[in-house]
Amino acid sequence: MQFRNNNMYMPTDKGSLSVHGTGYIEVNSDMARLKVKISTDNISLEEAQDKNKEITDRVLMSLEDYGIAEENIHSENLSVSKNYNLSNNTFLSYKVTNVISVLLDDFNKLGDVYSLIIENGANDEINVDFVLSNPTQYYNRALKKATQDALNKAGLLAKSFNVKYNPIPNKITELSSPVYAITYSSSSNSYYQDIAPGVVKIIAEVEAVFSTFPF
């Protein structure tokens, strides 16, 4: 503490105020994404692969015949694993798994596509995610809310601590990103008639630093 002429000297240096702003919105999904697992087991790896390809080709053909655009059908992952007898650790068979992703922008087609997939040999888990065709526009809206939240908090804290502050921040950090900010609802129900479109939640976060001054 410094003294000048026996009076207390108050520093005039700028201080800083750091706040965390959060904003979120919830919107109805406008697309459905089905992830279909096709699994085949055989003691022969070649036969397991051949059978898996046969079922996969049949499923893909049925989807294309139904009218699903080729760019909305993707083969995402092909994996091979070994099955063992857990009691004596002896080899039983090879398991080949293929994952197909199908995008739909018409929820009325969801039941038909679900049935087609099952009827043409898909024999493993089917998951349905409800997604957004243009998530960036919604993330930007959430981000705007996050910046306003940061401004509101800065004003509240400055008033509470009895300091003035510059409402223009000298540093802003975006803590979130469109890639990880979105939470999609999903369903793995085996009865497609129970599946309904879900709500998508988008959360954005920022950190802002403001300069403060004593009164």
Rank of each mutant, 00 (worst) to 15 (best):
L175H: 08
T22W: 00
S185L: 01
K51M: 12
S29R: 03
L110K: 07
N77C: 08
D65G: 11
N28A: 12
L34G: 05
S29Y: 05
N189T: 07
S16N: 05
E205M: 11
H74E: 15
G155I: 01
V19K: 01
E54S: 09
N6W: 04
I118L: 13
S160H: 09
E71K: 10
D65C: 06
L132G: 06
I172G: 06
V96N: 05
S39V: 06
A146G: 04
L60K: 13
K95M: 11
G198L: 05
L143C: 07
G155S: 13
I38D: 05
P135T: 12
S87W: 04
M31E: 14
E76S: 14
N134V: 09
V163C: 06
R4E: 09
L116D: 08
A154Y: 00
N6D: 14
A196F: 13
R4S: 13
K153V: 04
L110T: 14
G198E: 05
T173L: 14
V199T: 14
I172C: 07
S185Q: 07
L151D: 15
T22S: 09
V113T: 04
K159N: 12
V80T: 15
S211H: 09
K153S: 07
G15C: 10
N6L: 06
N170D: 14
V27K: 09
E174W: 05
I117L: 06
P214R: 05
P169W: 03
K153H: 04
H20T: 03
A142H: 02
A48L: 04
